[in-house]
Amino acid sequence: MEEIKKAIIEYAETSKKTKFYFKDMEKAVQSKVPGAKSRDIKKAASELVNEGTLIYFSTGSTTMYGLKGRGITEDK
């Protein structure tokens, strides 16, 4: 789990776009941690959200993830 969390944060810090889809995050994590299951990635992402490291970003119709403090951070 810690390994997956690390991979998520690494991706969230370096991704080209500051807000990304779950699937893109999933692919990036699986390239770092081969065999990581999407359910575990989701659990790790949820934990990171609860810890305040990751944020959900809503486009209005779909949901994306982002790193807190990177890109748009205020509700503007």
Binding site: S46, N50, F57, T59, G60, I72, E74, K76
Partner: peptide, 19 residues
């Protein structure tokens, strides 16, 4: 405008930002 970082703690849905 819609979307953004609004939501309630721990939930990824249920709130839709609108400005």
């Amino acid at each position: 405008k819609h979307g953004g970082i609004v939501g309630v703690f721990g939930y990824g849905g249920g709130v839709i930002g609108r400005y």
